[in-house]
Design a binder for these strands. Structure first.
Lengths: 200, 200
DNA sequence: CCGCAAATCTGCACAGACTGCAAGATCGGC
DNA sequence: GCCGATCTTGCAGTCTGTGCAGATTTGCGG
């Protein structure tokens, strides 16, 4: 269980680089920030930066990748009998409670919104999480990963999360994320055949 | 209606660059291809390449962006009363019939699968199409673009298309894409509450 | 403790990506 | 045909991203 000093140090460096990249990008704009600055802020050489990330963009969204992985793991730990969409609901509630990390999260999502070059990276991070989620759902339903249900559900859920958080952030982050997530999940659960007649 | 010579020439150059980028990447691998080679193959200067695309990756995926835009437009042209998911079904059928362009499509999707650096670009292209689709669905249902139904449906539909085409290509492109799409859309229509009991 | 093997960090060199700028070529309307 | 608008091109320069080889650090057995 215990991770060696080596691994811990690596993780620390990785997070320092990611945090530095995000902060510098938020304050100066991504284009104005060079790898050299990020490396200096994290107290490593520029060359080392590239041992961890292959681009500035990847570093900025690194925390998001971690968050997505974390979310998927929480899903995997939900009770086995629970319906998948209910598990998603529960996990999203947990995530929202996590106030301190939320601040960094909001900063990042806003940055992505204002810097088009980050969009592809952000989406790639979600795609990785989606692949992970597909496996989890397959296990949980007893279907194989090649069946369509796990893949479609994972994709739909990730999309829905994306839509929900986007809407939430548009309303300045003070809105009710859990409420939006609930609505979105209800839509998926009941089917998209026709628009809801009330309370759209 | 008539587009000037200027515009037509630009479009031609753009397509030549995109096609050259795709072909070179398929035959030599993306990493081995330089912008200079792409520009030469399209008979323009390297500098001009950057007037059209901001990276190699963007050029390779350019045809996909066009295809996605085309798909969205076909959706917009479906009869107004038709349920959204039925429109999607119909349009996908049209797309599959388009044999000659399919060959290029297959080559591209396979390339993206083997070159991780293309994934983000590909997803960004889908995201753009999704935004377009959200507007179309909003118009069609009489809801505003700020309602959740159009956004969730657009996201789910795009994800489902992605899953369907992925599965299709995994089976060497000779499988029944329309059949897979039908299954995927049925899943979305009926709701993801629980896995289908038969014919998963 | 000591020393060794493996993993990591770093500087150096270099090809290639990308951008701003200004001059030349081309198009479209009059 | 002429002129303004647009597009293309070369050039100069910065930054990204990678291979390589030599320090530096860590983990571990002696």
């Amino acid at each position: 269980m215990t991770t060696g000093l080596r691994e811990r140090k690596k993780l620390k460096t990785r997070r320092a680089l990611g945090a530095a990249a995000l902060e510098l990008a938020v304050t100066h704009g991504l284009a104005e920030v060079t790898v050299e600055q990020i490396a200096e802020a994290a107290d490593v050489s520029p060359r080392t930066f590239f041992n961890y990330f292959s681009s500035k963009e990847e570093a900025v969204v690194a925390a998001d990748v971690e968050r997505a992985r974390d979310t998927a793991e929480r899903l995997a730990e939900r009770p086995a009998g629970e319906p998948v969409l209910e598990s998603v609901r529960a996990v999203m509630r947990e995530m929202v409670v996590d106030a301190p990390r939320s601040r960094e999260w909001i900063a990042q999502v806003r940055l992505v919104k204002s810097e088009p070059s980050l969009v592809p990276q952000q989406l790639a991070a979600y795609a990785a999480a989606e692949a992970h989620l597909t496996g989890i759902i397959a296990d949980r339903t007893g279907l194989g990963p090649r069946d369509l249900y796990p893949a479609v559900t994972a994709a739909a859920v990730m999309s829905a999360m994306r839509v929900a958080t986007t809407r939430w952030l548009e309303s300045d982050g003070d809105g009710d994320l859990v409420g939006v997530v609930d609505q979105v999940i209800d839509l998926l659960a009941v089917g998209l055949q026709s628009p809801p007649s009330r309370a759209p």
